[in-house]
């Protein structure tokens, strides 16, 4: 569903952050994206999300070549992906509930049609009691779970998570990982960017994509 061929990227006139990246992500696959801080994990995820365009090379998403992609197609592609940002990016003036419901709301759906679904997911990630509060009063871990819930709510085919366990204690990290594994079993392809080695060791079956010095090494 995602295919990179000799992709290179530089920010402005800077050095190439990513060089000759070639890999693909299969439907229903589970992979960790890892590498030292500053290696380009977030950058790679942004390329998949189409929030960055490659300076060279070819990216194919769900069968669409991203070069010269139409805006409508872009919106449709983004609806097939869910994303958890490293810095969460919750909208501060909306409640937890409204934040999580956002992907459904922007599809033009009536609130009544998704309310139960959102409430159920919020309870499931342990935010049932916090659904009416605004993000600034949530703890780091709660924000993390809200961001994850927002990425899951529209049942995407591909989930991209940037350091989804960066702000939580090891036991919560384990539970979140179990959540991702569960989601993967129902058919969602998952990419988790992390440098948490302990986390990766808990799920040995996963592929590892390792970034180092601008290059990508794949361990199946």
């Amino acid at each position: 569903m995602v295919r990179f061929e000799n992709v290179g990227l530089r920010y402005g006139m800077g050095p190439e952050v990513l060089r000759d990246i070639s890999f693909s992500i299969e439907p229903q696959s589970f992979q960790f994206l890892t590498g030292p801080s500053g290696a380009g994990k977030t950058t790679l995820l942004r390329l998949i999300l189409l929030s960055l365009r490659p300076t060279r090379g070819l990216i194919n998403l769900f069968g669409h070549d991203v070069a010269g992609i139409e805006k409508d197609t872009l919106t449709a592609l983004r609806r097939r992906m869910g994303v958890v940002f490293q810095d969460f990016r919750l909208l501060e003036h909306l409640t937890t509930y409204e934040n999580v419901a956002l992907p459904l709301r922007v599809q033009g759906r009536e609130e009544a049609s998704y309310r139960a679904e959102v409430v159920e997911l919020l309870r499931w990630v342990g935010l049932g009691e916090r659904m009416h509060v605004l993000p600034p009063v949530l703890s780091g871990g709660e924000k993390q779970r809200a961001a994850i819930a927002r990425a899951l709510i529209a049942q995407p085919q591909l989930l991209l998570a940037d350091e989804p366990t960066g702000n939580v204690d090891p036991s919560l990290a384990r539970r979140l990982l179990r959540l991702f594994v569960e989601l993967n079993k129902t058919g969602t392809a998952i990419v988790i960017a992390t440098h948490d080695i302990a986390l990766m060791e808990q799920f040995d079956a996963a592929r590892r994509l390792v970034l180092g010095e601008g290059r990508l090494y794949v361990y199946d």
Binding site: L49, S51, K71, D72, T75, R78, R79, V83, R89, L91, L102, P103, V106, Q107, G108, R150, A154
Partner: peptide
Amino acid sequence: EVLHFVGASDDY
């Protein structure tokens, strides 16, 4: 930006 990422169209 966030609205774009969660799949909102420009029209929306």
